[in-house]
Design a protein around this nucleic acid. Structure first.
Length: 440
RNA sequence: UCCGCAGUAGCUCAAUCGGUAGAGCGGGUGGCUGUUAACCACUAGGUCGGGGGUUCGAGUCCCUCCUGCGGAGCCA
């Protein structure tokens, strides 16, 4: 076909800066509607979708006719005049002057009408081209950029922990096991212990990377591979953690509302609920939360008892009475990891805190103050029957200039799901890994 | 590991009391100058998840296995 690529190549997101000009777009055919003498081509280029109008007489001889045979998702390069048009969803459309077919696509598996989740996940590599998935992945990018920026601006150092580890970090979750030159290695379930070493070296750090859990969880809130951001700060206490998490989430939500408004609209997110994410977030003592839940036991399938960890239904019920994220702090030490510091005013309680997102999205942040006393830490390791040798380096941190320190872990996909208002975590990551899914 | 739901055309689903397997989308062919999940006509497309059983007759009832989904536990 004819190539008339003299006009400058631009992206669809920048079209409004070029009204009245002839431009070139390089992308793919998202959809086409045709009649005898006019065709409407929806062209996408990764930054947006624009409708291109081709009248039979607008393009060189033969181009109009051959365009009719172009299948969805064929790659094309088009030239045309950018025009303002009130009928367009994005305010502009293109009057085509030329079209070059780069590669014709075979019949595209993803239909314009609905598909089931299994089919879509089997075609995830193509599904990510769809409008909503593009919006979600752009929000994911903005969340990552904003969170990193939040800590970078405040002098935190990005500190990358190893992914291969020799031992179970917390001794709780089931880990993925792999052969490491004849030794057994595990895939990291958290970078936190390494983050503590980093905080004592650099003052305040954050880790950001993938983590792995071999739990056989089959729910929309679980992946076997997910991303966590884990800040760790020397000389910070539990109150400081809550202030930090609160400030971080308020900034994050504000930035996404501002910079990714278009994407939230594509996802039909009710942003009025996000507008309410302002300081302060309610701080609920575990004891008060437990008392509240015990009174509501008639509505639970699994009754709640003081001292229990929250189940999903308890968590949801607890957050229902608030419009913004809440903190629940000072969980019983017994149900928390060995490294949690005890509350000196209540030795049964740990200086731990979870942040629960509203609308039933559940725990997005968990953290607290770490045990910094050598003897207490050794005692905890014993109580949890963890092998002391494997933690020698971690114990060292208490021998050489131990300080009170705190940190938290933020689950990236859960945070994205909440902000974007999506039903299932698996759409918040390009290629989700679940118990039954290793491909694509 | 436990509980629940589902599996019918490439995809999404329907099929009454057990009685000749259908529709929409997608594909193909043709029509249409403002469509926007475009529309209209025609057309091709089926081992009803596998195995066994009941019955004159099974997509439908029974048993069993497989696969997927949702939830619980655990967690972010």
């Amino acid at each position: 076909m004819e190539v008339i690529a003299v006009a400058p190549w631009i992206y669809i997101e920048d079209l409004k800066k070029h009204i009245g000009e002839e431009v070139t777009l390089k992308g793919w055919l998202y959809n086409m509607r045709s009649s005898k003498k006019i065709r409407f081509l929806e062209v996408r280029d990764g930054t947006g979708i624009v409708q291109c109008v081709m009248g039979a007489g607008d393009v060189p001889a033969g181009v109009f006719e051959s365009t009719g045979g172009i299948s969805r998702e064929s790659s094309i390069i088009v030239t045309g005049i950018v025009k303002e048009d009130a009928r367009s969803k994005i305010g502009v459309e293109i009057g085509l002057t030329g079209l070059e077919l780069v590669a014709k696509a075979q019949p595209y598996p993803i239909a314009k009408k609905s598909h089931g989740p299994a089919f879509l996940l089997d075609h995830r590599h193509l599904w990510i081209r769809s409008r909503k998935q593009v919006a979600l992945l752009r929000i994911r990018h903005e969340v990552i950029r904003t969170l990193r920026g939040y800590f970078d601006k405040r002098g935190y150092v990005c500190f990358d922990p190893p992914i291969f580890t020799a031992n179970a970090c917390e001794g709780t979750s089931t880990l993925f096991q792999t052969d490491y030159f004849g030794k057994t290695a595990y895939l990291s379930q958290s970078g936190q212990l390494y983050g503590e070493a980093g905080a004592l070296a650099l003052g305040r750090i954050y880790t950001f990377g993938p983590t792995f859990r071999a739990e056989k969880s089959k729910t929309r809130r679980h992946l076997t591979e997910f991303w966590m951001m884990e800040p760790e700060i020397a000389y910070l206490d539990i109150e400081g953690v809550m202030e930090l998490v609160e400030d971080m989430l308020v900034e994050l939500v504000a930035v996404i509302l501002d910079k990714r408004a278009e994407e939230l609209k594509v996802l039909e997110r009710d942003t009025s609920l996000l507008e309410k994410v302002r300081k302060p977030f309610p701080r609920v003592h575990y004891k008060d939360a437990a008392a509240k839940l015990t009174k509501m036991n008639d509505r639970f399938k699994v009754p709640f008892e003081d001292g229990d960890d929250f189940g999903a239904e308890h968590e949801t019920e607890l957050t229902k009475s608030y419009e913004k994220p809440i903190f629940v702090h000072r969980f019983p030490a017994e149900i928390k990891a060995f490294y949690m510091k005890r509350d000196k005013d209540d030795p049964q309680a740990s200086l731990s805190v979870d942040c629960l997102a509203p609308e039933g999205y559940g725990e997005i942040v968990g953290g607290g103050e770490r045990e910094d006393d050598l003897d207490a830490l050794l005692k905890r390791l014993g109580e949890h029957s963890l092998p002391k040798e494997a933690f020698d380096w971690y114990i060292d941190l208490r021998k050489y200039g131990s300080v009170p320190h705190s940190g938290f872990g933020l689950g990236l996909e859960r945070t994205i799901s909440w902000i974007a208002g999506i039903h299932h975590l698996r759409e918040a990551i390009p290629f989700p890994r679940t118990i039954e899914r290793l491909t694509p």
